[in-house]
């Protein structure tokens, strides 16, 4: 096609769309997101952070650290003064650990649902209202079979609704379901739990004449305390371009981008 007719066609289209679509032929980089901290440095190093205006999926089995990561992310957002919303599909949110995580509870809207249908409709209402820094949907306790039945266009509609907004849409579930609608998909796996043992000196030493009990104090459960657990995060899919560092630390050596990383959690009484 001759160049002059192409230019004419382009100018005609731009004139026709003037006032409705700005720069219809301007290429927009879809993978450039504004990233914010997840609240966990190891996950930030892995993913770059949570993208604004996009959907992030965090999937994993129970005790894999999903909820801990969710609370850290909420703490990070509410500490910056953003209003967040949590759609709790099975009413599993614990306000006590949330407060211990650093979440400003006054800035968190908690929606306690009874089933996934309510959760999806509540999410729709919250996204349409706008103004939230993060909308988190917790489907962790919903059986995977049920979540798989959610049509893909529902996730697509959510993704489109948060596009071009500063809202982070965070989805917690047992397995990834949103397919390409999610800009970042992470899978978490449980690592080992950490138990501390109370020092033996704190326990009374039985006299020599007393027969030694069959179970050693060290193995008695009273002497154990759950300190925390570790979780391994793996990026399954990411459309985020992590901004390159322009300052190279020569002491750090060559670093390749990792796809998995381990982060620790600790219980409230261990902090």
């Amino acid at each position: 096609m001759p160049a002059t007719s192409l230019a004419t066609l382009r100018s005609n289209i731009e004139a026709h769309l003037h006032g409705r679509v700005a720069s219809p032929f301007a290429y927009r980089q879809c993978n450039v997101f504004h990233l914010v901290s997840t609240g966990v440095p190891q996950v930030d190093a892995l993913t770059g952070g949570l993208p604004r205006g996009a959907m992030t999926e965090i999937c994993g089995a129970p005790s894999s650290g999903r909820t801990s990561l969710l609370l850290a992310a909420l703490a990070s957002r509410t500490a910056d003064g953003e209003v967040c919303a949590l759609v709790d599909a099975r009413d599993s949110f614990d306000p006590l650990t949330a407060a211990a995580s650093g979440i400003a509870l006054k800035k968190l809207l908690w929606v306690r649902c009874q089933n996934i249908d309510q959760a999806l409709r509540a999410t729709d209402l919250l996204i349409q209202a706008g103004g939230f820094g993060m909308v988190a949907i917790d489907l962790s306790d919903v059986p995977a079979k049920i979540v798989r039945q959610v049509p893909l266009n529902a996730w697509f509609r959510f993704r489109r609704a948060v596009e071009d907004t500063p809202t982070i849409l965070l989805l917690l579930e047992q397995e990834a379901n949103a397919k390409t609608c999610a800009s970042l998909v992470m899978r978490l796996e449980a690592e080992e739990a950490k138990w501390t043992q109370v020092a033996q000196a704190l326990l009374p030493v039985p006299p020599a004449t007393t027969p030694r009990p069959s179970c050693s104090p060290l193995t008695h459960p009273v002497a154990q305390l759950l300190k925390g657990f570790a979780a391994r995060a793996e990026v399954l899919r990411s459309r985020i371009q992590i901004p390159e560092k322009h300052i190279i630390d020569i002491r750090a050596g060559t670093q390749s981008r990792a796809h998995r990383n381990v982060f620790e959690t600790e219980t409230i009484w261990s902090k």
Binding site: S37, G49, S68, A79, E266, T267
Partner: peptide, 28 residues
């Protein structure tokens, strides 16, 4: 927000809160 420049400069977690709290999911 106290951190008025939060949108411009992403908050970097301090060393003291580098470890996340182990969350408990309540059964109700």
């Amino acid at each position: 927000s106290r951190r008025g420049t939060a949108l411009l400069w992403p908050r970097k977690p301090s060393a003291t809160n580098a470890i996340a709290v182990g969350a408990l999911r309540i059964i109700r």
